[in-house]
């Protein structure tokens, strides 16, 4: 589904990604782990099309098509979803209005009919149970006055409603307590299918106890320096990232 080849990206003239190679197939869950500053979030945002980043080399194909040539909204309409590390507050726009607009844009892109507010409400009620959210939040402004945990659950709710083929979760576990983490992980797991794929960007191993990855990649200084199975995450937990700090050594499956 997704093929990243030799991806280089910079922000404000500073190079963050220094040659990423990664392939993700349908039905797979990949974890991307690394120390702070390694470029994990940058990778997530570049895949989503954040305008602040400049791709200076390499390619990314999605279903064989050039992803980097697509505007952020086109990527979303093609089924890519980024769960933000710091979800944005948008006072003045209700969660209901925002989600319905997004949902209908994606339906339009697929040539399907849009849903009216009542039909959409039915859909919403079903999805909200997935992340244990109170339907009253639909009338509140997007993420406004939400706790960190509520914001992250709202990201997963959006994911549940929009049904992406490739979900990229950017440090979704950061700042979450055990209960919130459990709810988020259960939500993600329920959405897993053989037709979609997930990239989990995370610093800590604990999320991977709940969402078990097929492959784990270690990102250090802008490059993937080791890839392996889920045992790699446990090894990192025990020994830390320092062994990879130099960024040397090609990854061999553990």
């Amino acid at each position: 589904m997704l093929k990243i080849k030799n991806l280089h990206a910079s922000i404000a003239g500073k190079e963050i990604l220094k040659g990423i190679d990664l392939t993700v197939n349908a039905g797979e869950v990949h974890a991307v782990m690394g120390p702070n500053g390694s470029g994990k979030s940058t990778l997530a945002q570049v895949l989503a099309g954040h305008p602040a980043y400049e791709v200076t080399d390499g390619s990314v194909t999605y279903d064989g098509r050039d992803l980097l040539a697509m505007d952020p909204e086109v990527r979303a309409q093609e089924g890519i979803f980024l769960a933000f590390q710091y979800p944005v507050e948008i006072p003045g726009v209700t969660n209901a209005y925002f989600l319905r607009s997004a949902y209908n844009e994606i339906r339009k892109a697929k040539g399907l009919e849009e849903l009216d507010p009542l039909e959409f409400l039915d859909l919403m009620e079903e999805k909200m149970k997935l992340v244990d959210m109170d339907p009253a939040m639909l009338n509140r402004s997007v993420n406004t006055g939400f706790s960190g945990g509520e914001k992250k659950r709202n990201e997963i709710l959006q994911m549940a409603v929009l049904g992406p083929r490739l979900a990229i979760l950017d440090e979704t576990d950061s700042g979450l307590d055990i209960d919130a983490l459990r709810i988020v992980a259960e939500g993600v797991n329920k959405l897993r299918s053989p037709d979609n794929a997930t990239i989990l960007v995370t610093h800590y191993q604990r999320l991977l106890n709940h969402i078990v990855p097929d492959e784990v990649h270690v990102l250090a200084a802008g490059r993937i320096v080791r890839s392996g199975g889920k045992e790699l995450a446990l090894a990192l937990e025990e020994k830390g990232y320092e062994q990879f700090a130099a960024g040397a050594g090609a990854g061999a499956a553990a």
Binding site: A48, G49, H50, P51, A52, D71, P72, E73, R75, A76, Q77, F81, L82, F84, P87, V88, I90, F98, S101, A102, E105, I106, A109, Q158, L162
Partner: peptide
């Protein structure tokens, strides 16, 4: 706000 703009576009809303 550019970040808010990107957030909405990343959910499929046009610019």
């Amino acid at each position: 706000d550019e970040t808010a703009l990107f957030y909405l576009r990343s959910r499929g809303l046009s610019n």
